[in-house]
Write a protein that binds this DNA or RNA. Sequence first.
DNA 1: CATGAATGAGAATTCATTCAT
DNA 2: GATGAATGAATTCTCATTCAT
Lengths: 201, 201, 201, 201
Amino acid sequence: MSPKQPRAAKRASFESDIIAVASEEFGRRGFEGFSLRKVAQKMGCAVGTLYLYFDSKEDLLHAVVEASFRALLESLRALPPANSAREMFRNAFRAYVEFGLKHPHHYRCAFAQPSPTPSAKYQPHAAFDLMREKVKAGVRAGVFQSNDAEVITQIIWASMHGLTSLLIARPEFPWEPRNVLIDSLSDALLTGLFRAKPQSH
Amino acid sequence: MSPKQPRAAKRASFESDIIAVASEEFGRRGFEGFSLRKVAQKMGCAVGTLYLYFDSKEDLLHAVVEASFRALLESLRALPPANSAREMFRNAFRAYVEFGLKHPHHYRCAFAQPSPTPSAKYQPHAAFDLMREKVKAGVRAGVFQSNDAEVITQIIWASMHGLTSLLIARPEFPWEPRNVLIDSLSDALLTGLFRAKPQSH
Amino acid sequence: MSPKQPRAAKRASFESDIIAVASEEFGRRGFEGFSLRKVAQKMGCAVGTLYLYFDSKEDLLHAVVEASFRALLESLRALPPANSAREMFRNAFRAYVEFGLKHPHHYRCAFAQPSPTPSAKYQPHAAFDLMREKVKAGVRAGVFQSNDAEVITQIIWASMHGLTSLLIARPEFPWEPRNVLIDSLSDALLTGLFRAKPQSH
Amino acid sequence: MSPKQPRAAKRASFESDIIAVASEEFGRRGFEGFSLRKVAQKMGCAVGTLYLYFDSKEDLLHAVVEASFRALLESLRALPPANSAREMFRNAFRAYVEFGLKHPHHYRCAFAQPSPTPSAKYQPHAAFDLMREKVKAGVRAGVFQSNDAEVITQIIWASMHGLTSLLIARPEFPWEPRNVLIDSLSDALLTGLFRAKPQSH
DNA sequence: CATGAATGAGAATTCATTCAT
DNA sequence: GATGAATGAATTCTCATTCAT
């Protein structure tokens, strides 16, 4: 008589199902085409049921964005150790872009601006923090020309995001090969940020 | 007795009024809050009247965004002459980002995912082309380490776009001062791309 | 405390209420005057509510016309038994025409030119099939000069339809009394179709 | 300086152009899809211009119907002389149906009911009168069993109309060959209406 | 005579949200 | 916990008609 899944787990599972479906819908159709009705339909449940899990449409979109960011964070955490700081950043850069290209819906969701009234909820906390820690370590190790870890982190992030989102948003554009773009951009940026190698002389 | 404004001029003036009002509406409310009703109301005319000037909502939006990007192109063209290639690129970089921050919704719209009706795809082609010409000139002048103008253009574009769209998408994030970010990113990137200054000594 | 009407019954009842109201509206105003708004208003419900029962205006109209033709079929089926084949056909003929005159808009709609969306094509198939069965029985009984049941059915149908639709389309024309027309036409046609009575003498 | 066409002729020509276009539109799109805007567009003139020729949409539709009927009348007038009354009616019957099939748009227009408020304007005066004259001649010649020319005319008309409009309205129906239907129906009907041939004995 | 601008009403449809059951 | 019925507002868009030019 006792349920296989305890009640809380069942609830959580259903909730994450909703988020997954909504994520797909939102990433695919964009802001305009997203509607609770369609989510409910894909979930095979009544529209009202969604309100048992989320207070409003906006609330659900919050959750979608957060979930997408968590996924991004995990993919950054999984990076293998590297031999040098430079290599490590190059790997992270590549991992970031490739995550976005592999999960364009999630990526789009993560950086969509769900509410016209900007709320402070969606800070890319953990993922950004992870990058900052890496940068700070680099600063401590003296590999960067600048000491301002925050600035360095933000501009690296901006570059990664720029390439990723452009490739996603304009799939039909005659891009140069992705690998070339990723490497060229990360190389140029890191070269510009890193202290020049001591010229052997 | 003859009309002050000839008919065509009056029409053109009204049309650009609509675009201006729509632009403001779209800039204020963004994609989802934008409706022909509100535009008509602000114009003080009937909704149907808008259809005398634009075939559809999408059509009007297209005109709005196009007008914005004409403005970007002009602001890129109007850049004051620079003393060096490096300075020129830095100025362009800054102008680009600042344009995006001044018209966040338009910028976002231009890079939004293509709508189901593919007609409404806004391509900042002209601006990209302008950048490429500048890069090509730089390549000819031998300022870049690489000769591949296309790759260089694309990664510069990606960086500009990345910083712009991040700042737009996450206005509440504790960003470092914009000027710092713009300068740091463009400097680092250009340093990485440019041929190292011949150490004369 | 339990509801008088179970949910399904209530739903079905409401649905058939809608059809009834829509039917009246359509019957009164015809094709062009028919609008969901008016139906909702007469129903005392919101327009959107209609969409809980029918997918679209067309869908509702389809149901309306279908219901009418079910009624035609039933009235053809409910014809009292006749003493002779000839009388039976005359009764059917009359029932058909009178049905059309009682529901002129529905009848017209059923034979209106197919709408751009081909889904909404109303075919009085069943009634036609019923007629064909009767003709076939007549052929087997040897009452017709010809053996071609299909041809006979089609020309009987054409005659019934012709009188019906003309009377509907030109209500202001100085027609002879309906009964006279119905009887005269069916008599002449059946006389022409039936095998001449063996002159016994 | 003097116009090739006198003013009145030019006006009449333009008017009949409008009617032709409207006829085509109305016959093709049916009642729902017909709009003055589309007519004006096909005419290459402004919508307002139509109002210089017709007081209203309804007015134009009146003219369309009348014109269609005139065309029908002319085709009936052009019938070659026949050897017998029976043959003459058979020819007329066939001519009528074939006119409808050759000009389905016109035919549909002629029998469409343009206004929900039935007006007495659309009586198929001339064409119907022509048929009645033929019937009257037949009555005088004693070929019909009945003397009531009006009734005879009306039921012949109904039959012709029925076959014609059914074939037009249901082109996809598996009809027997048209010729067979036309001949069978007219034969049966005329047989029923005509006085039996004096049996030679 | 003809235009094109303008209107206001009305159309179908979708949506987020609420609530009794 | 879940449903499905219901709402009311909002959306885009079309149309017949009028009128100054």
